[in-house]
Design a protein around this nucleic acid. Sequence first.
DNA 1: GAAAAACTCGACACTGTGTCGACTCCAGCC
DNA 2: GGCTGGAGTCGACACAGTGTCGAGTTTTTC
Lengths: 209, 209
Amino acid sequence: MIGMSTAPAGRRRGPSKGDLREQAILATARDLLSRKPLDAITIDELAAGAEISRSSFYFYFDSKLAVVVALLHGLAGEVGRDAGPWLDGAGPDEPALRRSLAALAALWRDQGRLLTGALAAAPGCPPIARWRAWLREAHVERLAARIARDRAAGVAPHGPAPRVLAEMIDDLRTAAFAAASDPEGLVDDLVVVELRMIYGVLPAHHAEG
Amino acid sequence: MIGMSTAPAGRRRGPSKGDLREQAILATARDLLSRKPLDAITIDELAAGAEISRSSFYFYFDSKLAVVVALLHGLAGEVGRDAGPWLDGAGPDEPALRRSLAALAALWRDQGRLLTGALAAAPGCPPIARWRAWLREAHVERLAARIARDRAAGVAPHGPAPRVLAEMIDDLRTAAFAAASDPEGLVDDLVVVELRMIYGVLPAHHAEG
DNA sequence: GAAAAACTCGACACTGTGTCGACTCCAGCC
DNA sequence: GGCTGGAGTCGACACAGTGTCGAGTTTTTC
């Protein structure tokens, strides 16, 4: 995940033993999260996976949630991946929206339990709450701006305040992906639904009987 | 909440001491839930509120979540309240949808923490998961049927499978209400958004500039 | 090769949950 | 009146998971 060669090499210090242990904890966490939900994972397991004692774990992280925060930061860049063309564009640009949603769906497929666990832990864990709020805000703000632009251009109908609508879309995405066993199978339907929420029914989707 | 007069009366046994204690536990739970989230409530507090020892609590309920389940069942009737006219009707019947959402919003206003706590506990607590699934299914099924009917009648445009669309609408409601500090303030916007998800933009909401 | 830092761990304290068995209380019955 | 059995009560215990502390060992640095 770090991408460095595994050679500690004699000369020039590579990652210190501590760095390796820290990575081992993170790797163990990722691994366990692929198999069970966050709150079924104990610090014991995390420590065992990194081959250190439970007390040593605390040398590296303050708590289980601190590990989650670290994993989350590793994800920060990926969350908004490919959303640019959609968020910065204008009008019902279906392909751009689909690309944005496809990237998000892939993330939920790979990191679903991490995201689910983080979401569940957010109330009661300020750092995670902040991460979540920051991410959500980034999306909501740009999407709201886009909606306002489209309305001003007469491309989108009036309705709920852009910000409220954007929040609902964000909520819907999160809820739908969190509940789905196959996030990627949801993309096409989400595309249609989001476009409807913003623009109403597009001509191509109209039906007569 | 039980509705009986408070007189234990000399003759004819009223509720037994145990029944009263059970009610006291439920009342304490409701009370605490109005002030803090479920997982900040301990069995100690519940027992103290009912003026019994912690071990005695277990005479009445198997666990904290069993109390939640009991509270939830007390709510079962209210959740779908006033949804009938909307779910059994046809076409974009905005007033009916609004009444249905208003009733739901009132429930979230009064029981938000209970619902939030139950939702969070559902994975990992089969009885709660079943309650949630049953309720959701009841809504989704009727809504999906309604959407299918409207499409067949040419009133609603085609799009995602009725069931999928109904699930998204259910998810959106839950997510929006769970996140809102003022659920009732969301009703009008939800009405517009849900109608759009099903029917597209209605004439009255079109804008030209 | 000695001081400092990085690291490790066992032992402990704490919180919350759930169980067990002994005890009390009270109603109904001989 | 005294007996019995079920309802209700509780203290003591066992357990899991978390987090802390201080005494050790290893590694780095000069």
